[in-house]
Write a protein that binds this DNA or RNA. Structure first.
Length: 267
DNA sequence: TTGTGTTTTATTGCCTCC
DNA sequence: GGAGGCAATAAAACACAA
């Protein structure tokens, strides 16, 4: 436990009031060099007059002392014993006063540093928040597009299914098995004359055409693997879903953050 | 002039290091 | 165990609005 003797405490009062000085310190910043020199000389006089005067009251350090201490603090915010004694001698202060000033100065610096850190963190948080909000908006737009495309696909599938039922009926009625066998030949062999199958789906202009491509290519997989009899295969709604519950990974969910389990299943 | 909030100087108690 | 650092706090000095 530290205790300070009375001489230290009383010596701590050896300084002059600086309220006026502090006010001039703030105001001096815009003064000319000559005027500043004049102020400095006045302050020096003031200081020399009062430095030897021991007051009972607690006094603030004068401008010169504060300036010198600040300068030293900028160089190194910790005070070695030698520097403390040197500074105290130069400024007419007790070593203990110099030590206390550095201690309080470090505390003020720490507070300011905390404020700066808080400001920096707050700014980066705001930027991140804005970024997230923008992403969320984009996500919403994309989700809406997916929804629209799905609805479009569904309605066309409905229209096509009624059409293909009629078509199938007509084919089975009017045509014979030979035409069916020729289809099988077309799909399983090298002779790919079917324009619907060979056509690049990306070049298909209408969604109707695209739908046919889905259906036929699906049939081709069946026929190609098992050489079965041609059977028009209608896609079930769940098969048509571009993104199943697992596949979508909630990527287009507005309410829920996207998960990446489909990309990183081990996670 | 005075009440009140802020800043500065100093003290106290605890902790760490050598 | 002494020296020095830090957090919390007291108290004086100061600023400023009403």
């Amino acid at each position: 436990m530290k205790r300070f003797n009375s001489s230290d405490s009383s010596a701590a009062f050896i300084s002059i009031s600086s309220s006026k000085e502090e006010r001039t310190q703030k105001a001096n910043q815009g003064y000319s060099r000559d005027f500043q020199a004049m102020l400095d000389s006045l302050e020096e006089e003031d200081y020399s007059e009062t430095a030897s005067h021991v007051s009972e009251k607690k006094r603030r350090l004068n401008l010169h002392q504060v300036k010198a201490l600040e300068k030293n603090f900028e160089v190194e915010n910790k005070l070695e014993p030698e520097r403390k004694l040197k500074l105290a001698g130069e400024l007419g202060l007790q070593p203990r006063q110099v030590a206390i000033w550095f201690q309080n100065r470090r505390a003020r610096w720490k507070t300011k540093q905390l404020e700066r850190d808080y400001g920096t963190l707050k700014a980066s948080y705001e930027a991140l928040k804005l970024d997230y909000s923008n992403l969320e908006q984009k996500n919403e737009v994309l989700a809406q597009k997916v929804k629209e495309l799905k609805a479009k696909l569904m309605s066309q599938e409905k229209a096509d299914s009624s059409h293909s039922v009629k078509e199938e009926y007509r084919v089975s009625e009017s045509d014979n098995n030979a035409s069916v066998h020729s289809k099988i030949h077309d799909f399983s062999g090298n002779n790919n004359n079917s324009s619907a199958i060979t056509k690049d789906p990306s070049n298909m202009s209408s969604s109707h055409e695209l739908m046919n491509w889905f259906q036929l290519s699906d049939s081709r997989v069946i026929l190609g693997s098992r050489y079965q009899v041609y059977q028009p295969h209608l896609m079930k709604p769940e098969d048509q879903s571009l993104f199943s519950a697992e596949e979508s990974c909630n990527f287009f969910s507005v309410d829920q953050a996207p998960t990446l389990h489909c990309y990183f299943p081990e996670q």
